[in-house]
Structures are given as C-alpha cells and as structure tokens.
Design a binder for these strands. Sequence first.
DNA 1: CTCCCTTTGTGCGTGGGTTCACAAGCGTCT
DNA 2: AGACGCTTGTGAACCCACGCACAAAGGGAG
Lengths: 255, 255
Amino acid sequence: MSPHRVSPPGAVVLGERGGRPVPEATIVRLAVYLRALCSLAEGGATVVSSEELAAASGVGSAKLRKDLSFLGSHGTRGVGYDVPRLLARLELTLGLDRAHVVAVVGAGNLGRALVGYDGFARRGFTVGALFDADPTTHGEAVLGVPVHPIEDLAAVCRHLGITIGVVAVPAEAAQDVCDRLVAAGTTCVLNFAPVVLATPPGVQVRQVDLAAELQVLSFHLARRAAEVLGDGAHEIDPAAGAGAQDPRTKTVVST
Amino acid sequence: MSPHRVSPPGAVVLGERGGRPVPEATIVRLAVYLRALCSLAEGGATVVSSEELAAASGVGSAKLRKDLSFLGSHGTRGVGYDVPRLLARLELTLGLDRAHVVAVVGAGNLGRALVGYDGFARRGFTVGALFDADPTTHGEAVLGVPVHPIEDLAAVCRHLGITIGVVAVPAEAAQDVCDRLVAAGTTCVLNFAPVVLATPPGVQVRQVDLAAELQVLSFHLARRAAEVLGDGAHEIDPAAGAGAQDPRTKTVVST
DNA sequence: CTCCCTTTGTGCGTGGGTTCACAAGCGTCT
DNA sequence: AGACGCTTGTGAACCCACGCACAAAGGGAG
C-alpha cells in the first residue's frame, strides 16, 4: 500500500555502470578515503597499500578493501593501489569529475561561514548564490557571492542549474525553504536545521544536527559519570595522563 | 605517532544504572526524539503515541518503541507516552539535566557561527570560551565570549571545568588542537576538521565533515544521471514497509 | 625460469540492528 | 462490572555489515 519507502538506513543502492550495489555506509566512507588519499598524494606517494590507507582513514584494512571492491577498483596484488588511478576512480564514483554549484539558503552566521569554507571549493563545490528572507541583506555580497531574496530562489537556481541546496535557516523556516528548493528543481538537500524535512520521493536529504552531536557526547559523559558513581566493580581512572595508553577502558569495544 | 585508536563505528555501549546496553545508533536517535518531543510539548501536547512521535522523528514506530524500551521508559498502554515524563527521561539519559560548558577552538567563520548558534543554548550547552592561534583575535569578544590564545587552553578549560571541546580549525592544526584538548582534561571532542583524529582510549570523538556530506549527495546525483543514461540495471526493492504515511520519503526511484 | 614474499580480493561466520507480529496491559463505553 | 479497542513492550526472524582468514596473483631475487 505504501508506494514509497522511508529513508532506508542500510539500504543498498545501485552502483554505476558496473552494476554492483553499493551499501550506503560504504558511500560515506568513500569520501573519507578520498580525503586521506589526497593527503597522501600531496605527500608525493604514488602507491599505497590498503593497510596504510586504512590507517589514515581510521578503519580496518579489510573493510577498506571490501569497500573499494564494490567499485571494481583494480589495485595491484603484491604492491598496493596506484594513487592517481584510485583517486580518479573515487572522484568519478562520487561524481566529482563534474563541478557542482550549490545554493545556500540563510545568510546568517552559519550560511556565511559555509560560503567561506574552503573545504567545499577543494572538492569542486562552489556556492553560486545565497538567499535570505531579510531584505536588508539583499544585494549584499559575501565573499563575492550575492545575496538574493528568497522569492528569487527558483529563478536563480534554474538559471545557474543548481541541483544541490543547503538549508541554513531557523527550524521554523526550514520546511518552507526545502519546499522552495524542491520546487526549483533541486534534488539534493543538506539540512542544518533541527527538523525532519518532508520531501517528495527522489529527493536526497542529509541531515546535520549540531546540537544532536553534542547530545551524543553528553550521553557518553553521563554514562561515564554513572559508571564511576554507583556502578559496582568498575575501574576507570579519571583523566590521568594523555600519553599513556590504558588498555583497560571499556568505553568502547570492538574493531 | 598515534598508538591510539580511532572512533568506533558500531559499538554497543553500556547503559546507565539499569545496566542495559544501548546501541550507538539508538543514542543518536534519542536526540532526534527529544527534538520532536519538544516541538510537541510546545504545541501543548500532554501525551503522544509512538506512531505520532515516530512520524515527527522520521522513523518507524516499532523502532522508536524499541529505542525507548532500552531506557526502561514507561509509557501507558492504550494511551501513549506522557510528554513531560518522557521528556525528562530523555534529558536525563542524554545528560542534559546538567548544564554543559563547551570550548570552541578556532575563531574563524565556523567558530563564530557556532558561538551564535542558538540550538546549543536551547539544549543546555553554552560556549564558555573561544580559542585561536591568531594573536589579533585575542582579547576580542564574540557575543560576549572571550577569545583566548590557544596556549591558555589547558588553564582556561580546567578553570571552567570544560569537558567538551569543539575543533573548528583547519585540517593541519586539528590534531594538535585535539591533543591540547585532551591534555586539558577534555574527554569529548566534536571535530569539524576533515581529518581523522587520533585520541587515547576513553575520549569520544564525533566527526562532522561538511564536504563529505556534499560528496554523498553528489554520489547520488551521479548515480541517478548514470541511471537515466544507458544503464540497463535498475531495480528498486519493492519492500512494502509498515510505515503507512510517512512524511519523509527519500527513496530514489527510477522510471 | 622458478621460488618466495607481499598484497589484493573475497567467501564465510558472527553479531548487531531493523522489522514484523503478537501478547500484555490500560482506559473506556455500555 | 465486563468486554472491547487501542497502544505499549518485546520475542523472534531477517538482513546487512563487519572482520577473519585464505586463495589468487603480481613482482623481485636467485
């Protein structure tokens, strides 16, 4: 009965030409691998082993090899991966072979910070336009990016061929902005507002909730505090030296 | 460098007094539930069903109930959850019963935006101090928050009892800043720099990589483009979910 | 040319997470 | 008071994902 599904957490998405399905979790890590690979490339490395790259990415080497195998990447056995080749492959897979223009909605502190964030430009993302509801900001330019009234969103986006929108407005306005973006032909939305956005099928939404991140950290703080207090038979040395690696810390296991 | 481990992906952490293990994935969602619950509470709701709250949070109702059951929450069968009671329970679990002071390192665009972000204050997080390496910023105050030289990090953090640090500096400086934070007694780090931080065991790190988020969106764009072109392989899992009318639909449909 | 060392690629076992489906419990209407 | 309907809580199956460990394969030395 339900024609559409909800956000599939562990959904398997189709790969590209090769036709291999790529787990969603892997996609996120590909970006991490790309980052690490760029660092290594700048360091002059021409080949890299899965062990090295995995260490630089903070994952296990087996996981990395499996992730890379999804996109049929060819490393050389006994040697490792050719850095420029793998780099090109990752960029192609992530769609970075083409320049992307994004629209940032909300010219507040966060929106302006995003315009100035050089991590975007370094990956081929450029902010083509800023939008805001406040008329006093209109016509202003932030680092060369003009601020438009929000009513012009559709027109400007279509004119610039923008397909990625960033929502950096207060929670109350987020859904409205999202609707406008979708109406303007945007199919990918990066949302910083602390609300769950409703979108038609086919639109990709990624949520970045800063307060939630802090709350997760807070949870771990509280858990540790509770452990020290009433939980019997537990041993955690408070703080202590940073240099020493304590083998006995049960905060997190696995890996 | 770095005999230390990195952030663990899917680890099961110990719960609180009750001793029930709480999945890491659940913890993240608890923050989302709290958000949705606050909205409902402001709307005057006194009870809420799992179906309603799930819809407002963008998840399935069964998942929500299971998540809530981890913290031994008491709903009333046939009625739903008591909003103020559940709200208090969530805040307690997430450690929000106590005010948290965080340190933001990096007084650039992002750092300043974080100071002004009201989503923090609304959840009991206050920025107690800013730090930066640039001497011209020292002594300045951003929205009443003083900017200190980075050398004073340990002293100020200890004086204010800061246990959460936010890294908002360029990638090159991130590891150094992280080390300083850890040395200052910080046990939780929120990292915006595009690097994998090495930390001693017991230190929680959460990574927010804005460029990576955009790359994931870019991947989906590229995938869709490849699909439209000549790719013979489309297949979307039909999978009729239990969710009847979920507002959030971000499936990627072909044809 | 052959042997050996190194590293990739992957089949499989295990474990965690998500979903389904149902029993238990609470309120309410008659 | 008794029965009915609604909602929670959870037991169990499914499914993905992670990690181990090994076979396949390339390069270099002798």
